[in-house]
Design a binder for these strands. Structure first.
Length: 884
RNA sequence: AGGCAGUUAGCUCAGCUGGAAGAGCAUUUCUCUUACAAAGAAAAGGUCGCAGGUUCAAAUCCUGCACUGCCUACCA
């Protein structure tokens, strides 16, 4: 074994092993299942920190459950990624050949996309393998492969025939760069500094005008009314009158609607029903005309020829200019408001009227709310429950059609006549082209041009991965569904999580998962979101290269408190890398010492105090670690592992074990080795979910011909040797060691100098005295003490340095390495410090209410403390006097 | 505008069923002691955001405020 842990070779070896030996493949059986489906990354994806975190956490859970003996299954897959993917290929096409998708046409463009997909391959899946993910690689699913397509069609047809899917002309979010409608969840809002323009709308009487404040002066041509609040006394007389739109002089009415906020702007609003959601509602309530002035290319239409065909931004400039020239502009204020942008290309979203497919989600939402309200689905952390419910309760129908090419084409067929024109017959939803029209028996059909929102297929993911679309009597689906836990970031709670619940209940009559574990988002060290444009991205692949995959995973696990965002920079991985090295070397110590031992007893026998102590600490820690894993507090599990292994196991137990390891008595050596091995192996198991590579390697060295760690079953921790009192006793010894070490350091006693030590107890406590005598070899070993003797008569003591650790007083003779004056100062300082404490505690105890109301144990504890401190001061004073 | 988080050592964060402030990194000092210098031993560093309240006792519970971040919204 190398002296320094070198991860590369070991990681490659185990990656390959797990895949080739199908370590993580699962079949339905009689054993209890534990199922997780991966949030499928986009095919365009390249592993970033978010993926690394999300998948590490899933892997931790899967590996832990596997150790517990569950039949675990983690299903891998990728998403076709709709708009995002089409954009990537479109950009490539433009760059390489200077062509647009329209130059190629739908068929050829889609062919290009498929080619690109094969070329690019499943890069991200390979990266997940590299990360060590225990996915079942025989089950890789793609949201657009045959089985998943079947599922999408089946779902669509069911919903269509139920009357839940309908076509309607409505105001929708439109990205003119992507050329498609978007759902509300696909819009990202950003604050933008803009202006508020105050415009004059003249009454028919040309001397009077009202002032209207607007952020969108270019849409005046689409105005079909002005509106005021009915309770706004300033404008009562105005309601019902006509005003003229600036520039074009078109007459519109002033109406009243209670939604208008009196305090904003002038309290008068221009109503543009075709391009604003609120205005649209007002128009519906007041039966106003709806006039479209922006088309799907983001250009002006139905406006004076001067502005016709201009894109919105330019039109705004021109209109403002003209308004100003013609004296319609009263003033311009600065105004910051949030603007909706496309989540895939950041183009400003226009609202416009368009015919789209919608899914009525009212009933599904109710059931999805109920499932979480009743805690049938449990959220970790609970704080996400409320936003989830609120969102679902206010959900409008879902716009599911997209005007792009890459995706599941809507399986709706229209009957056409011999000229290819659509007839009035009812459209049919079906898997393939229908044989004949229900209404006119025609055999001519065309398919709907639109594709489905990517998230439609994603919403089916937990059932489609088990081939819900293909098979009717599906054993696997029955066995693995509902899945056990969904692990995800909160950014797709609405986009994805909620919709899976809706669809799961709709199609399976059963929730898709029992638990939802929502982790935070990774930020840089300044708390900023990581993004390429900010240049603050920490690449997980680099980290894996530089620090090792286990170090990456351990860092992520340690930072992953449920629901909390985490800040990460390159230095965050250092501590973890060092910890890996620690594990490696501690194991090396054990392994090297096992070399000439032919056989080790499996049964352990705690003999000494340190044995009993480490077993007690180990028992406590393992319980904590297991509980932490169980409730997705993976950060706590990682912390406990770190603390126990490094501090307790390495720094104390391994160090103390050296006394017996170097013993010439083979039995003594074997006895301590057995405990070292037992704890090491158990810890390796418990660590393996987070850091599978290093633990697999060490496990294999320790258990040459046995099962690999990933396939092992967690050792049962026996309570037989648990000794609570050993912890207290050991703590006493540790305290003495630490105090002597501190003294050595403070007084610059060279480490090579072995010192003589005497000790006494403050209250002549025989038991403690016995404990120390029994374990003085620990003190000798770790504090570099030559001899340690009990001192009966302290009265005669002269010129000793003294320290007090709990109830024990330790004396070290002054042997020229320290001046009396220096020691006096040290002791006086100690007295002053203790006195401060004494004051505080005395005050507490003199408080009558404390004595009256505090629990007895607490009072007792405080009294003992005070007593000890007083004793301490007494002794220090005495020692001070003995210094001559 | 509303909702949800967060505010603890220079930095990143634990601790929050209320009873003597913790870790890692960085800093300082010693040490290559036969697993590990990516280490060991030790030191220094904190009115636990601010102001109230409950309590014998508050980093921990309650209220208000401030700042930061996120989510939602019909910001004309």
């Amino acid at each position: 074994m190398e002296r320094v842990y070198a991860p590369k070779r070991i990681e490659e070896k185990w990656c390959k092993y797990w895949v080739e030996n199908k370590t993580f493949s699962a079949k339905s059986s009689n054993n209890k299942p534990f199922t997780v489906v991966i949030p499928p990354p986009n095919i365009t994806g390249c592993l970033h920190m978010g993926h690394a975190l999300n998948n590490t956490l899933q892997d931790v859970i899967i590996r832990f459950k596997k150790l517990q003996g569950y039949n675990t299954l983690w299903v891998p897959g990728i998403d076709h990624g709709g708009i995002a993917t089409q954009n990537v290929v479109e950009r490539l096409l433009k760059k390489k050949e200077g062509k647009t998708k329209h130059d190629l046409g739908r068929e050829r463009f889609l062919q290009r996309m498929s080619e690109w997909r094969i070329e690019t391959g499943d890069v991200i899946l390979d990266q997940l393998k590299k990360l060590g993910c225990g996915l079942d690689w025989d089950r890789v699913a793609f949201t657009m492969d045959k089985s998943r397509s079947k599922a999408v069609k089946r779902a669509f047809i069911q919903l269509f025939n139920k009357g839940l899917i309908y076509k309607g002309k409505r105001l929708v979010n439109w990205c003119y760069r992507c050329g498609t409608a978007l759902s509300d969840t696909e819009i990202e809002y950003e604050h933008e500094r803009s202006n508020l323009w105050y415009l004059k709308y003249y009454l028919v009487n040309p001397k009077e005008y009202v002032v209207v404040a607007t952020t969108r002066p270019e849409t005046i041509f689409g105005d079909t009314a002005l509106a005021v609040n009915p309770e706004d006394k300033r404008y009562t007389s105005l309601v019902g009158k006509s005003v003229k739109i600036p520039i074009i002089d078109k007459e519109i009415k002033v109406i009243s609607d209670s939604i208008i906020d009196k305090s904003f702007g002038t309290g008068v609003v221009k109503i543009t029903p075709a391009h604003d959601a609120t205005d649209n509602e007002i128009a519906k309530r007041n039966k106003l005309e709806i006039l479209e002035i922006i088309d799907t290319n983001g250009k002006m239409i139905n406006v004076p020829s001067k502005y016709q065909e201009l894109i919105v931004e330019e039109a705004r400039k021109k209109v403002v200019e003209d308004l100003s020239v013609k004296d319609f502009l009263v003033k311009v204020d600065d105004h910051t408001h949030s603007v909706g942008k496309c989540y895939r290309c950041s183009t400003k979203i226009e609202l416009l009227i368009s015919e789209q497919w919608f899914l009525n989600v009212r009933d599904m939402s109710k059931k999805a709310v109920e499932a979480v309200n009743s805690e049938k689905i449990f959220f970790y952390p609970q704080s996400w429950k409320k936003p989830y419910i609120l969102w679902l309760e206010n959900l409008k129908d879902w716009c599911i059609s997209r005007q792009i090419w890459w995706g599941h084409r809507i399986p709706v067929y229209y009957c056409v006549d011999e000229n290819g024109n659509r007839t009035k017959c009812r459209p049919i939803a079906s898997f393939d082209k229908p044989i004949e029209c229900h209404d006119c028996k025609s055999k001519n059909f065309i398919q709907d041009e639109d594709v489905l929102d990517t998230w439609f297929s994603s919403a089916l993911w937990p059932i489609s991965v088990f081939n819900w679309g293909k098979e009717e009597n599906n054993k696997e689906l029955k066995y693995f569904y509902p899945t056990s836990v969904l692990v995800t970031g909160h950014e797709i709670l609405y986009l994805w999580v909620a919709r899976m619940v809706q669809f799961g209940i709709e199609f399976m009559k059963e929730i898709p998962y029992y638990n939802v574990f929502i982790h935070g988002i990774i930020r840089d060290k300044h708390g900023k979101k990581m993004s390429k444009s900010l240049g603050n991205v920490v690449d997980p692949l680099n980290v894996m290269d530089q620090y090792g995959t286990d170090a990456l995973r351990f860092t992520l696990a340690k930072a992953a408190a449920p629901g909390r965002d985490m800040q990460i920079s390159n230095t965050s991985f250092l501590a973890s890398r060092n910890f890996m090295n620690k594990i490696w070397n501690a194991s090396r110590f054990v392994i090297v010492n096992l070399e000439h031992i032919d056989k080790l007893d499996n049964a352990i026998q705690p003999i000494e105090l340190s044995d009993k102590w480490i077993i007690a600490e180990f028992t406590n820690s393992t319980a904590k670690i297991k509980r932490a894993y169980e409730f997705y507090n993976i950060d706590n599990a990682a912390r406990e592992i770190y603390d126990f292994f490094w501090t307790k196991y390495c720094n104390w137990y391994v160090e103390l074990s050296k006394i017996r390891i170097t013993s010439t008595n083979l039995n003594i050596k074997k006895q301590v080795l057995a405990i070292l091995v037992y704890i090491l192996k158990s810890m390796l198991q418990l660590m393996s979910p987070i850091i599978p590579f290093i633990t697999s390697e060490i496990w294999q060295i320790l258990n040459k011909n046995e099962k690999i760690i990933a396939e092992s079953i967690l050792f049962a921790i026996s309570e037989n040797f648990y000794s609570e009192s050993s912890i207290k006793e050991m703590n006493t010894i540790q305290d003495i060691i630490i105090k002597i070490r501190t003294l050595r350091s403070e007084l610059n006693i060279p480490s090579t100098m072995q010192i003589k030590v005497l000790f006494n107890t403050l209250d002549n406590n025989d038991k403690i005295e016995g404990t120390i005598i029994e374990n003085k070899h620990y003190i000798k070993q770790l504090a570099r003490v030559k001899s340690m003797q009990y001192l009966k008569n302290i009265a005669k003591l002269r010129n000793f340095v003294s320290i007090i650790a709990g109830n024990i007083e330790v004396f070290i003779p002054l042997e020229g390495f320290i001046g009396i004056e220096k020691e006096k100062i040290r002791l006086e300082k100690e007295i002053a410090l203790t006195n401060q404490e004494v004051e505080k505690v005395t005050l507490k105890l003199s408080n009558k209410n404390f004595i009256k109301k505090a629990p007895k144990t607490e009072i007792e504890k405080t009294k003992i403390r005070l007593h000890e401190m007083k004793l301490k001061i007494e002794r220090i004073n005495k020692n001070l006097k003995s210094l001559i």
